[in-house]
């Protein structure tokens, strides 16, 4: 447990120190959202209809930048080997970083919400529910994303391979997150929200356990 907390603290500290980069990622996400509206056209009804999809696509695209950076410092300063030599469980390393990534993606997602409110007239009064979905969706992206980030950080063409590997994988999480958010924004007459959230939770449960299990093999030498 102490290893995990130490890893988490280290990664949060790292993220705080590179917060300028985070701002850039946020601007990228907001720009993407703007571009989506240009792709659809100024049809307010259509934009509102698809706002949930745009939010999550924007977040997904931004996550490739955020996740790719997450192992940057470990690889650049060969810190990864050093960390693995420590008596801490490598799984603690993984969960610490993955959780830090969840936090980062959540902040990103929450930051993009005002953007969709303004651009697409997509508002919901159910703020806690929206926050919960953003956290769960961020967790869904973060679990396999952190694992693949560790993998691709050690190779060339890393910036292409991370999204290539991640995007097909997170389809269930993306679908569930988009549908859930859409139901919050557009209304949920048939009460489907809990089912979609359950799917998202199931995805998170599977991948948070599986990726933690295999992380050690991925970073061993």
């Amino acid at each position: 447990m102490s290893g995990f907390l130490a890893a988490l603290r280290k990664d949060l500290l790292l993220q705080w120190r590179t917060r300028a980069q985070f701002v850039a990622v946020f601007v990228f996400g907001a720009t993407a959202l703007l571009l989506f509206s240009f792709a659809i056209g100024p049809d307010a009804a259509a934009l509102r209809q698809h706002s949930a999809g745009f939010l999550w696509l924007g977040l997904l695209l931004s996550s490739t930048l955020a996740l790719a950076d997450s192992f940057e410092s470990e690889v650049q300063h060969r810190a990864l080997e050093g960390l693995l030599l420590l008596p801490a469980d490598p799984r603690a390393l993984y969960y610490g970083k993955a959780l830090a990534n969840v936090l980062q993606l959540t902040v990103l997602g929450v930051g993009l919400v005002p953007v969709i409110v303004v651009l697409y007239d997509a508002f919901t009064a159910r703020i806690p529910a929206l926050l919960a979905i953003i956290v769960l969706g961020a967790a869904g992206l973060s679990a396999p994303g952190t694992l693949y980030s560790a993998m691709t950080a050690q190779m060339r063409a890393r910036n292409t391979l991370l999204p290539l590997l991640l995007f097909p994988l997170v389809v269930p999480a993306l679908l569930a997150a988009v549908k859930s958010t859409s139901l919050l924004i557009l209304g949920d007459p048939m009460g489907q929200l809990t089912s979609w959230v359950a799917l998202l939770v199931a995805f998170d449960a599977v991948y948070w356990s599986l990726c933690g299990l295999v992380f050690e093999r991925v970073v061993e030498d």
Partner: peptide, 11 residues
């Protein structure tokens, strides 16, 4: 991921 993808898409 296969069963997860299948159920999410079917739904």
């Amino acid at each position: 991921d296969v069963p997860l993808v299948y159920f999410s898409v079917r739904w």
